[in-house]
Design a protein around this nucleic acid. Sequence first.
DNA 1: TCGAGAAAACCGTCCAGACGGTATAGTAAC
DNA 2: GTTACTATACCGTCTGGACGGTTTTCTCGA
Lengths: 181, 181
Amino acid sequence: MSRPPRARESVLDAYAALLIADGERAATVEATARTAGVSKGGLLYHFASKDALNEALIEHMRALALSDTEAIRTAPEGPIAAFMRISTMTGSPADRAIVAVSRLAQSGNPAAVEALRGLRTAWEDAIRPHARDETALQMVLLVSDGLYFNAALTIGSVLGPVPEGEELAALIAFVENAAQR
Amino acid sequence: MSRPPRARESVLDAYAALLIADGERAATVEATARTAGVSKGGLLYHFASKDALNEALIEHMRALALSDTEAIRTAPEGPIAAFMRISTMTGSPADRAIVAVSRLAQSGNPAAVEALRGLRTAWEDAIRPHARDETALQMVLLVSDGLYFNAALTIGSVLGPVPEGEELAALIAFVENAAQR
DNA sequence: TCGAGAAAACCGTCCAGACGGTATAGTAAC
DNA sequence: GTTACTATACCGTCTGGACGGTTTTCTCGA
């Protein structure tokens, strides 16, 4: 029939990148199109409105994140370690999507809030069986939230230390030891 | 010389409130003026530009937060417990200011990022003497970051559970037990 | 003590530009 | 001939900021 759409993906990518790096204010339709190397008309061919663009980004995040959740659930190293390692994977597609959607949520988008809440619930359910009690579970999730918070501020300019390598391994061991059943 | 400015304070308050509740997009000069019960011209009398308004908010946050840090350092219940309790005091002036500035930081404001980094360093220095090691210190800070992250999303619409009362006490005890020297 | 005047504190309106969105005419791959 | 775009122009709305005017308050000399 026709050539496959190559703009769609690059538009979503560009929109997420702008949201993460410069915030919602800068993530305009025109700027997104420019960043994606697409004309404004081309963008609006795929996403009829900015609302539609938001919905698509949220759906994209949901798909990526839920597949991550499945990986957490079945990880051989155990869910807590896998969860924390994934939470620090700054720059991964899923991480970028989550941070971008959290920008939307912070600007009051209800669908974004709902999607993040669903994701958090999925994480809770995946980890609960491996946590000592509800308090330990909350602590694990809060550490992960903290990592996301830092990642969200770090991308573009360094704020706090996002742990890596040995430092991250030590943190994972520490949290696991404190929280594990 | 003149009457004391009553608009200045209410403008800063309104600006923070808008940033927190609706994000940077909604926190326009006119909306801020309207929320503060001041005319746009009146606002611009005190803050010559939006940049000036941002700088004033950041300075305001710095003052509030550093006085909080002093309270953490000298708290009888110990720095870790005091730190976590303050981190969950959603709605306090300092908390509101921090969340508002973190919105600015996320939209790329370098001064906001710098101020938050300074605050984090101050917290680190206050808690380090009471933490078992650097890993435990990072965990305490990350839990606090997680609390802020949730508070930031919770205000306006509930996302995750921001612990209160007994739940919070249990979390504090848990983290203290895991981290304390 | 008092009132004139200077400065500070604020108001309301206007403007150029940017925004989201619509429309349209054309092009190139399949 | 349908799909996937480009390029450009346009509309109504909102934005930050500039500006001139008005009210309130304090100061100080007579």
